[in-house]
């Protein structure tokens, strides 16, 4: 009965969707605002990558919001999860090849992540993509050897510093330009150079570090959660966090 009712509902919803989607123009995007941004992007932001211009300059507040969502999700996950002792793990350590491979990949992933972040205003890529690569650099070794200690302390400071930088750059621009989150107080620079497009590279660097640290700590929280057959650690929450 329940199955029947849900199927009926789905058919209804599918019909509703097909009516909605049927009325949409395809391949004839209205480009109301998009065209204006494509035309004004270089002059306004100096960034070759228009998506970067939209993310960090035109819609910077959205990016701050999404950054904060990652942060608050990681915080809430850290509040909910029980921790098991470091080194106590149900999951076995991976074999030599995986362990050595993870160690070997670490510096290359760091370099690639840094490259993707710093060239975000010129080429495809940027803070989110690069941040995800940075996070992978840290949790690939962690996946290979699940029992190892996670650098929570250092991570907390990177996280706080990067997040604060993103907002402080915004507040700083109030004094220079009069507007919050105006990224152009450094000048747009020479188009196509690494150091150009105002504070966009700085913003992307802060964003990348923050995203990397948040994704890393989210994975660490999930990995630190004891499985169903691990013994509980009776430890007061406050003691765990300090």
């Amino acid at each position: 009965m329940r199955q029947f009712a849900s199927l009926l509902f789905l058919f209804g919803f599918a019909f509703f969707l097909s009516v909605l989607v049927g009325g949409l123009p395809f391949g004839a995007a209205p480009m109301q605002v998009g065209q204006a941004i494509v035309e004004q992007n270089i002059e306004a932001t100096g960034a070759a990558n228009a998506v970067t211009g939209v993310l960090l300059a035109f819609r910077g507040m959205d990016t701050l919001g999404e950054l904060t969502i990652l942060f608050v999700a990681a915080t809430a996950a850290g509040m909910v999860v029980e921790r098991r002792k470091h080194g106590v793990s149900r999951d076995s350590v991976a074999g030599f090849i995986l362990l050595a491979g993870a160690e070997l990949m670490f510096p290359f992933l760091l370099i690639l992540g840094a490259y993707v972040i710093l060239h975000g205003h010129l080429t495809p890529g940027g803070g989110f993509q690069g941040g995800a690569i940075l996070a992978a650099a840290f949790f690939v070794p962690f996946l290979a050897n699940p029992g190892r200690a996670f650098q929570g302390h250092a991570m907390a400071f990177v996280e706080a510093f990067a997040g604060a930088t993103f907002i402080l750059l915004g507040i700083f621009s109030i004094f220079r330009e009069g507007d919050f989150m105006a990224p152009m107080f450094l000048g747009t620079g020479e188009f196509g150079q690494l150091v150009s497009a105002g504070s966009l590279p700085l913003l992307y660097l802060a964003l990348g570090l923050k995203v990397g640290a948040e994704l890393g700590s989210l994975v660490a929280e999930i990995a630190a959660a004891p499985g169903s057959d691990d013994p509980l650690i009776e430890e007061p929450q406050a003691a765990k966090d300090l």
Binding site: L64, T75, A164
Partner: peptide, 9 residues
């Protein structure tokens, strides 16, 4: 938001 970012550190 700034205060929230700084709090964990």
């Amino acid at each position: 938001l700034l205060a929230a970012f700084l709090l964990p550190a």
